[in-house]
Design a protein around this nucleic acid. Structure first.
Length: 292
DNA sequence: CACTTCCCCTGCAAGC
DNA sequence: TGCTTGCAGGGGAAGT
């Protein structure tokens, strides 16, 4: 489940194997809604292009191309961008993997879930976009063109401040967790890091956002920056699907305190972590360390 | 406008 | 063993 750290790890590790290489051919399979730009048009627009840079805003990746156009990719829940130079069986589901011989497992071969395949003029490693559940999105923007999805995004969560939090929570009656998940207010926070940051800030996910004090906002901003940065340092969270473009797993799942730990003791106080549903999402908290 | 609910999709684990 | 059921959740659309 790629959130900001996983998307940023993807950006950092994909850029070196993509930037500066001329695309010989783009093979696009599958239809809307994954490809907001029709597949044949997308393939045509990518052919012959060179990516100059890869940027990120929230959970969106923006590939800046040499004709001033942009390729935008959102990985959704199960999206994976990776290079054929990465040889990791983890790029496939357990079922798909078990159907392969050991030799086949050693190298990736495009499967039914591989929706975009880029080959290059230099004949080097290809780049793939794979998305089992197709919650991801890809679109091409002509020079100067934007898209409502991008324009709606709030400030990037990596640089969230107490001031930003005070602003986006003021007067809000919704649970603080709903606010954190709203990409129009803060871009990049998903379910894992919302729970982890709220735990570290000692704030219950159900607290009405408008009831946060200035001190709460300060703590929460610090906690958000901490968990996002720490996850980045450890290569992201590889809890179910995430694998970096180079095939490596992240390690932040080993440092999580509450997410998917329902029933297990709080590492600070020993009380069992509880699970509930907030904003239609599975939510985890310590009833003692997050009193309200 | 603020906020909630529904739904898209597939793999996987648990239960019978 | 093999079936069904529930769950995972990003985020837009529709509903309250």
């Amino acid at each position: 489940m790629p959130e900001l750290p996983e998307v940023e790890v993807t950006r950092r590790r994909l850029a070196p194997v993509l930037v500066g290489r001329r695309i010989r051919r783009a093979r696009v399979s599958g239809a809307a809604p994954l490809f907001l730009t029709p597949a044949p048009l997308l393939a045509r627009r990518l052919r012959g292009r060179v990516a100059r840079a890869v940027r990120r805003h929230g959970k969106y990746l923006l590939f800046e191309l040499d004709d001033e156009s942009r390729l935008v990719i959102h990985l959704g829940m199960t999206g994976q961008l990776f290079s054929s130079a990465a040889r990791s069986p983890r790029l496939l589901s357990a079922t798909a993997r078990s159907a392969l011989s050991p030799e086949e497992q050693a190298s990736f071969r495009p499967d039914v879930h591989t929706h975009l395949r880029l080959s290059f003029e230099d004949g080097g490693p290809e780049v793939f976009l794979r998305d089992v559940r197709r919650f991801g999105r890809a679109l091409h923007l002509a020079p100067g063109e934007s898209h409502p999805r991008l324009e709606r995004l709030g400030p990037d969560a990596l640089r969230v401040t107490a001031g930003v939090l005070r602003e986006v929570t003021r007067g809000r009656r919704a649970p603080i967790k709903s606010i954190l998940l709203d990409q129009a207010r803060i871009a990049g926070v998903g379910n894992i890091y919302a729970d982890e940051a709220l735990y570290r800030a000692g704030i219950r996910p159900t607290r009405r956002a408008g009831r946060l004090s200035a001190i709460d906002c300060d703590r929460l901003a610090g906690a958000l920056r901490f968990v996002l940065r720490r996850s980045l340092e450890t290569g992201g969270s590889s809890i179910s699907d995430f694998v970096a473009p180079d095939g490596r797993d992240g390690r932040f799942q080993d440092e999580r305190r509450v997410y998917a730990r329902a029933g297990e003791p709080c590492l600070a106080c020993g009380v069992p972590i509880r699970r509930m549903v907030v904003a239609q999402r599975s939510t985890h908290y310590c009833p003692r360390c997050q009193p309200r």
